[in-house]
Design a protein around this nucleic acid. Sequence first.
DNA 1: TGACTTAATTATGAATTCAAAATTACGTTG
DNA 2: CAACGTAATTTTGAATTCATAATTAAGTCA
Lengths: 230, 230
Amino acid sequence: MMQATETQTIARKSLHHELVDRLQMLIINAELAPGTKVPEKLLCDQFGVSRTPLREALKVLASVGLVRLEPNRGAWVTQVTEDEVEEVFPVLGALEALSGELACKRITDAEIEEVRALHEQMMQSYENRDLDAYFSINQKIHRAILMAARNSTLTTSCQALSLRMQRARYLANMTEGRWYDAVQEHEKILKYLVARDGPKLAATLLDHMDAKRISVVRWLQAREATPEVS
Amino acid sequence: MMQATETQTIARKSLHHELVDRLQMLIINAELAPGTKVPEKLLCDQFGVSRTPLREALKVLASVGLVRLEPNRGAWVTQVTEDEVEEVFPVLGALEALSGELACKRITDAEIEEVRALHEQMMQSYENRDLDAYFSINQKIHRAILMAARNSTLTTSCQALSLRMQRARYLANMTEGRWYDAVQEHEKILKYLVARDGPKLAATLLDHMDAKRISVVRWLQAREATPEVS
DNA sequence: TGACTTAATTATGAATTCAAAATTACGTTG
DNA sequence: CAACGTAATTTTGAATTCATAATTAAGTCA
């Protein structure tokens, strides 16, 4: 009746587009380690593609800052630096604040219920001290608010910057105290979303992002002071 | 003593990077018309390059939304739609507001003087009803504020979105009334920058962008109602 | 003539090839 | 044996080639 769906899935996007996604994943999960060279040949073999589409994908990744292209020396996975964090988080904050603002105007009751459900799941993860689950749900909440803003340009911009900050689980570092604070912030986020109070939600998201920035910078600084672990 | 600088300049960036810039220019100046197909072969001939680097450049341009890639049907120059304008301007507004906020914290007295000089030039252009000069200087002012914010991520994000809105001189359409208002807004922008009043500057830039959005949408709507001119 | 097939042509996506640059391996000399 | 210089190897950037999909042109039949 129909071909295997996998064939369709692979055929759906062009090769280079598929590769952009795959490479992004590898970089975010630090399977391609920050600061290392992108092993072009190896990846071609692994994905079973030629260098042409892979290199096309690398150009795209370079344009969003996930890799750096050095003339005649290939592509290198970029590292998250303190300077970069200080730059990206304020921008991300402004964009998330806008998403909150817009979401309050456009979100449906059903969508609010979805966020509430996610929020409760997240709280459960907090109780269980299950950091992986907490982060996964956390991201879903932010994405849900972004979706409710009904602005694909905003979505794209936000996600591009988020990706850069998501690398190597940098965000997964939380002290007990920071985790508690983050949870409190999320209570406010839900409250203002339910109340559809745009300005207050925007302000809270901005604070939330700023607190995250401080936490990440602190961790990077501690990391820097520590001798490199293999 | 040294090679011709042009050789250096050409050698500095890779071919695909150079092509990204060139194609961007062609699209912004509508030499590649919105809605038309990107003439791959012709451009290769004109630039004297093979398809490989040109196609790499097209993938990058697609990722920022200046072209759309249709599977097996090539690259098409995207059109500025009303929906897109309604999406992009709020995001650009949030980013410019942030740039104003940050600029007030970081701008030097010398830089403020530069902006003031640009502002005066722009006013002169307004007196002379020289729209081209006005727009050129206008952009320089916004860029100067952006530079003063000292945030390259913000700069990149802003410029990517600005590019999309700059296409085909859409912004160059102004009624006499809108032009007057824009000039008033710019007086406020300068005033708050000089006073280093971040919040007020941010708010003014936001309003400025919103007014621009309305003006552009109005023009697009009028355009839509008009039978197509060659 | 005008709609529909089918064949020729062209354009696209991706693999391959090739020249030039960078890296590595090796040998030489102080 | 350590530093330098040179040759072999690998990698990179870009041109070329090739299979396939899309478009155009030509031919057929009502």
